[in-house]
């Protein structure tokens, strides 16, 4: 057991999989010799050498296209797109190529790859380097979408993503790179498509993802201590596949649902969960499901402004408390 950072967990997860399988290769901008702009891939170049850990030009289409061609023909590439906002310049691969080739070819074409990327706000980088793009990815049939919130989950879900036969978008949260967590020694392997109840409770269900998980947990503590509300917090972890069983079972127990989403409000992942719960668990609900999201605006750069627009523990507490009428 050791305490490591989320960024170190990224390097450890990649190293674990590269050591295990010589077909795993890694490419991206500044990822090799420089160890990544977020220092999340330090040491991999030294450990695995220039044939397996490769720096690329600033060519996001070439990075994702090359990853796909390698994946189709037998490798298991991990590609890094430095900021998830840059998905917009290589979205053809994410939206048209990775996820549709197997279907269009009637099952002939395989695409076992992972796209890692720095997602989310909190770094005061402004509207084009801070977005939460999980909703861009979740809407595409054929992709899998994962967003870990702890160092342990980074390693286990990254390992699962690399071993998965489908294309997986792996969203690392930039504001979590510095956090620390306990991880056991030895191989760590998790399962895609499994949500985790990170705080059991009986009065309401709060569903969160990535950076929002710690905020939901902080809110739950305040709700319990100051308002006597016992919230259950679920870390979704994987948007596709989506563990709706865990969420539906929780709502059946607590009878109230809240989602905490960093993505802008329209078509955010929480809308899909609310829709599923409304369809399938309507009579379990004692009140309307409530979404707590970033508003439908581009993200501002200034710290004061950015802090206001993201869901905070205070906003979560306030929303839940008022909704429950306490």
């Amino acid at each position: 057991m050791a305490e490591i950072t989320y960024r170190d967990a990224v390097a450890r997860g990649i190293a674990q999989e590269m050591a295990r399988d010589p077909d795993v290769v890694f490419l991206g901008e500044d990822v090799a010799k420089a160890g990544g702009v977020f220092k999340a891939t330090v040491g991999l170049y030294e450990q695995f050498g220039p044939l397996r850990v490769r720096d690329t030009p600033i060519s996001e289409q070439a990075i994702l296209g090359a990853a796909m061609g390698a994946a189709m023909t037998g490798l298991k590439p991990i590609a890094e797109i430095m900021f998830s906002d840059f998905f917009a310049v290589c979205f053809d691969y994410i939206a048209n190529e990775f996820p549709k080739s197997r279907y269009m070819s009637n099952g002939q074409t395989k695409c076992p790859l992972v796209v890692r990327t720095g997602n989310g706000a909190g770094s005061r980088f402004g509207a084009q380097h801070s977005q939460s793009v999980e909703n861009w990815c979740m809407m595409i049939p054929g992709l899998k979408v994962v967003a870990p919130s702890t160092p342990l989950d980074v390693i286990g879900l990254l390992a699962a993503a690399v071993r998965d036969p489908d294309p997986v978008i792996f969203l690392e949260h930039k504001s979590l790179y510095a956090i620390k967590g306990e991880v056991p020694d030895g191989e760590i392997l998790d399962t895609l498509g499994t949500a985790k109840i990170v705080r059991p409770g009986k009065d309401c269900t709060i569903v969160a993802l990535a950076l929002m998980v710690s905020r939901a947990l902080a809110a739950a503590e305040t709700l319990k201590n100051e308002h006597g509300i016992d919230a259950e917090v679920i870390d979704v972890r994987s948007l596709v596949p989506l563990d709706t069983r865990t969420i539906l079972a929780s709502v059946a127990k607590t009878n109230r649902l809240f989602t905490v989403e960093e993505n802008p409000r329209l078509c955010g992942w929480g809308a899909e969960i609310v829709s599923i719960v409304a369809d399938e668990a309507f009579y379990d609900l004692d009140g309307p499901p409530v979404r707590i999201t970033t508003p439908h605006i581009p993200l501002p750069a200034a710290d004061l402004l950015e802090d206001i627009v993201l869901p905070t523990p205070e906003r979560i507490v306030d929303t839940v408390r008022r909704s429950l009428g306490s």
Binding site: S59, Q61, A62, I63, L64, G65, A66, A67, M68, G69, A70, A71, M72, T73, G74, L75, P77, D92, Y93, N96, E97, S101, M104, S105, Q108, T109
Partner: peptide, 28 residues
């Protein structure tokens, strides 16, 4: 697409397959 004949796909988004061919060549 007929992978058994080495036809690794026909791509209808202009330009998409040039990087993909690079990736297959990288594997080789």
């Amino acid at each position: 697409t007929s992978e058994e004949h080495g036809v690794m796909g026909s791509y209808a988004i202009i330009g998409a397959h040039l990087p993909i061919a690079c990736g297959a060549a990288w594997r080789a």
